[in-house]
Amino acid sequence: MSGLEFVNFYLIPGLVLGCIYAISAVGLSLLFGILRFANFAHGDMMSWGGYSALVAVTFLGIGPWASIPVAIVSTVALGLLVQRLFYGRLKGANSVVLLISGFGVALMIRAILYFLFGPTEVTYGLGIQRPFVWEGFRIQWRHMYFIGTAVAIVTALHLFLTRTRTGKAMRAMSDNPDLARITGIPTDRVVTVAWVIGASLTAVAGVFLAIDTQLSPLMGFNLLLPTFAAAILGGIGKPYGAIVGGLVIGLAEEMSSLPLIDGQPLLTPAYKTGVAFAILVAVLIVRPTGIFRSPQ
């Protein structure tokens, strides 16, 4: 295999997948830091975002890229509603109860999607586009947009978390919610902001995934495991770690089918999902707090 083949067929797809995982995992991790429990409905909210865009594509006649804002608004609304109706009412309960509640929310969202759209896979109908080719190096335009958006999101999030009052308050609350309350930080408002950001990222990841593959009610759930693996690898609750975690998992999944031995893939593509799980288990054994050292 030539170096160019490696770049075109393994490195680029790995990066693209990694970017989608990263966007999704940052959302999960950010919300975890504030809510203090892992939102099990994260994957299904991603599907929700994907279908919201589909509705916009179908009824407003706009392209999938232009429908991302619609997906964001709709997913944020869903997140705030779930927080208001379910999670928020379980305040003070054992965090495992919240996990169970999230599990239930996931199934409820999925049931709605199945009910409205049925189980068949659909696409936004983007059609086939000519890839960008340069000296044998090939990349799909949409993949460049994905990577570009991921970089933009990470930059914007970094500026938000380090330069704005609300962003700093969010980090403070993620560090120590009790101290944040004592300090006079309005924690309810921070929760709302966290949902707005977290759900927006979820929606973007969902639309990207649907653009790249196909939309189905199970699409997001299938991303739950790699998203968690990425978030835990990066140290759950740490958005920056989640970016690295997402890229690592995405690259590892694509590399797992490298034909290194006798032209056979290392791992049958059917087991790609298993890569994320294997990494997750390895992290849990070796360093459950994630690969990055945390202060204190």
């Binding site: 799980f277 997750l280 288990v281 849990l284």
Partner: peptide
């Protein structure tokens, strides 16, 4: 933590 147990068993 229970989140990890949950995701590991789901895995």
């Amino acid at each position: 933590r229970s989140d990890y147990l949950a995701i590991a068993t789901l895995g």
